[in-house]
Computed example of a mutant assay.
Amino acid sequence: MKNTTPPSRRRRALMLAAAAGIGVAQFGLAHAQSQAYPNRPVTLIIPWPAGGSTDRHLRALAEIASKHLGQPIVVENRPGAGGTLGPATMAQTAKPDGYTIAQFPLGLLRMPHMQKTNWDPLTDFTYIIGVSGYTFGLTVKADSPYKTFKDYIEAARKQPGAINYGSTGTGSSPHLLMEELAGNAKVQLTHVPFKGNADLQAALLGGHVMAQSDASGWDKYVDGGQMRLLVTFGEQRTQRWPEVPTAQELGYGVVSTSPYGLAGPKGMDPAVVKVLHDAFKKAMDDPKHIEVLGQLNQAMWYRNGEDYRKWAVDTYAKDKALIERLGLAAR
């Protein structure tokens, strides 16, 4: 039978069929790639030196998650800029293929308010999963003259600017919570920033700073008698150190846990994000991980990728107001 379809319509039909074929092929390729993921080790960037509480936690979590992922998760410590250097560099240079991810510390949502950055925490990252938060505290050496937090604050009141403390970096939660507290207490403290927990602890034990504001990486030194824990910053006293008061109950009005999770560069395939999310969620629920959280006195803070992103948007706006109130906003 003779084909009576006009040539123009035949050409159009052939073009549509070809386009559909390409679309199906591309979908099949993307599907195959996501199905094949991961087929090599995944790098997890921890933006703090080895040995601190975050490093201890995420190494343990990554080891468990690697079994569910079917590939090793290789940890890289890239400290600097208050925990923002490693993730920001990843966001700018890594391919969004799921083979490079990083811890997303709260400082990433604060740093752009305090100085000009060439990255945006809300648009340059793919949020994967919310994991945990910290128990923050202020510790001094065991032989410090400050037996209580009141002693420390009274010394600052008598000697404005002469009493110092170290933190894990400018703009980090241990820094900002102390600045907020100092403002509420109407005292002047001198801040000394460090690259991470390990450097800070060494400085305190060496007598180079009077106190350290940090997450619970100091736990073994407190339990071992080398440091004294003066105050914690949760809503309630900790189960592990129930004799230590909170800043809230002492009347300073500061509560901070600084939740964190994992993120990758922007533009990651949702199917790949789901593979990572599911592996880390299973790892979070593993009894071995729950045991590590107990050792670090940290609580679970699970958020899926979308809820984590929404939380980040809200926190970014809230912390802008805090930073402006503390006089730390970029000028």
Rank of each mutant, 00 (worst) to 15 (best):
G264L: 00
Y134Q: 09
N304W: 04
A94S: 12
A185H: 07
L322Q: 12
K116Q: 15
G234T: 04
A263W: 00
G224K: 09
K281G: 03
P287E: 11
T139M: 10
A20C: 15
N304T: 07
P270I: 02
Y308K: 03
G98N: 03
K282N: 08
Q248S: 13
A60L: 14
A321R: 12
L250T: 10
L14A: 15
S132T: 15
K158G: 02
A25G: 13
D223S: 15
M300F: 12
D307F: 07
T148L: 01
W119Q: 07
D143R: 00
H57A: 13
N3L: 06
F149Y: 14
L229G: 00
E291P: 06
P47K: 02
D143F: 03
L44P: 01
G225F: 14
K282W: 11
V275I: 08
G267F: 08
I129F: 01
W311Y: 14
L44E: 05
V75G: 01
V255S: 12
K150H: 13
T54I: 12
P96H: 04
T246R: 10
N197I: 06
S258L: 05
T117F: 03
Y316H: 15
R10G: 06
A60M: 12
V273C: 04
R9T: 12
T246L: 12
Q92M: 15
K195Y: 13
T126L: 06
P265W: 07
V254Q: 00
Q103F: 08
I64N: 03
A247H: 05
N164H: 07
N39V: 12
N297Q: 10
A263F: 00
A271H: 08
T93H: 10
P38Q: 04
V244A: 10
R331H: 13
A247S: 02
A13W: 09
R40A: 13
Y302V: 09
L61M: 09
G98Q: 01
W241V: 09
K220H: 14
R12Y: 09
G70K: 07
W301L: 13
S213I: 02
G133S: 11
I101Y: 09
K95A: 05
L61P: 08
A60Y: 06
G21T: 11
G267W: 02
T4R: 10
D124Q: 00
Y260G: 03
A88G: 09
F104M: 01
T5N: 10
T238Q: 03
A25E: 12
M114Y: 00
T232P: 03
K147E: 14
Q239L: 04
G264I: 06
P160Y: 00
F233D: 01
Y302T: 10
D314V: 05
S258R: 04
Q71S: 07
H175D: 15
G251W: 09
G171Q: 08
S172R: 01
V42W: 01
D219N: 14
K281Y: 13
Q26G: 11
V75K: 08
T232S: 03
D223T: 14
F27W: 14
L44R: 03
E76I: 14
V192G: 05
L326Y: 09
G130A: 11
D285P: 05
A60I: 07
A162I: 07
A182C: 01
V140E: 00
D285Y: 03
